[in-house]
Amino acid sequence: MPASVSAAIRAAMLESDPRAKVMAARKVARDWRLGRLAFVFDEPMPDQPGWPDAPELLPPGRMPRRRKAGSERGRIALWHAIGHIEFVAIDLALDMAGRFGAEMGEGFVGDFLSVAADEAMHFVLIDRHLRTLGSHYGALPAHAGLWSAAHDTRHDVAARLAVVPMVLEARGLDVTPLTLERVRAAGDERGARILQRILDDEIRHVRFGANHFADVAKRLGAVNGELWKVLVSRHFRGTLKPPFNDSARLAAGLSRDIYHGVA
């Protein structure tokens, strides 16, 4: 009998070494795609993934102020922050597939395992770029709050979809183009190519979230946009602030009607 998909996902989530987690996430996605894992959920997802000792994780209020954007230290801090987001995003996608896959079906599992593989590749590209700048992932402190959105919505797939892909990842669609322009203006063409790849992939990731959320809303007999607003107000601690990248959001399945009135 093939191994259960939940056991493979749990093992990948518990890897604490970044390189080992990257390899494990990509292997789970590949094994699922090739039919080597059974659609069986006999292992629970961990409440806390395995993470390395570095970077030091700090509350938002204790994070050091970002250096001037054009300075060498500022560039390193920017890429380190993006790298941390992508590293935690590996576990966010794995947990989505492993925690809610039994309820949501095989297509859902495949979608979010492919997201995990994408996030793993994004992390590798960013860590390599950091090394060309004379640094590496773990060299600076990082934001400790990224996982809290997953932990707070661990009992409700609709809430998880509403907050993680449709708010947090969608926010990346808003801010990445401006970051890309600044990186390119600074002469970092390699960095700009990395950000363009991330942006292209994130449109697909948000679309997965929006499509599966719509399916859940239909199953519940709820109006898609109304349910999303209720769940965001209940589970998202921050605020949604313009400007919004409406064209990228629309390509990802988020019409302006959905988030109009929330910001």
Rank of each mutant, 00 (worst) to 15 (best):
L195V: 09
L180Y: 01
E169Q: 06
H129F: 05
N224D: 15
D42N: 11
A81D: 15
R128E: 15
K27M: 10
S135E: 09
D95L: 04
F87I: 10
H235I: 07
A12Q: 12
E189V: 14
R19Y: 02
R62F: 13
E106C: 03
S71E: 10
L113I: 12
E43S: 14
D95T: 11
G83D: 12
L78S: 05
R197V: 09
N224W: 04
V206T: 06
A97H: 03
M45P: 09
A252G: 11
A102T: 10
P243F: 01
Q196A: 10
V109E: 05
H155E: 15
E43M: 11
G83F: 03
D215R: 11
A159W: 01
P46H: 10
G105I: 11
A54H: 12
A54M: 10
E103I: 01
I9T: 07
G107V: 10
P60N: 12
D201E: 13
F87P: 07
E43Q: 15
E103F: 00
W79Q: 08
H260N: 13
V157E: 00
V206Q: 01
H212A: 00
G172Y: 00
A222R: 14
Y137C: 05
A248D: 09
A11N: 12
A144P: 08
L231R: 00
R204P: 04
A11W: 02
E169S: 01
L240G: 03
V167D: 04
S4D: 14
V262C: 01
F39L: 15
A3H: 07
L180I: 05
A263E: 14
D215M: 07
N224C: 09
R237H: 10
G253N: 04
V206Y: 00
E202K: 02
H260R: 15
A69V: 14
A150I: 10
G187A: 08
E119N: 03
G138T: 13
A192F: 02
V28L: 07
L125Y: 08
D127R: 07
A158R: 04
P242R: 02
R207A: 09
P52D: 08
A214K: 11
V232H: 01
W79H: 06
G187N: 09
S16Y: 05
E226G: 02
H80M: 08
F112W: 15
I82F: 00
E43A: 15
S71P: 09
I90W: 02
R204E: 15
W228L: 05
G209S: 02
F213T: 04
F87M: 12
A150E: 07
L231G: 00
L113A: 07
E72T: 12
G261E: 11
I9C: 02
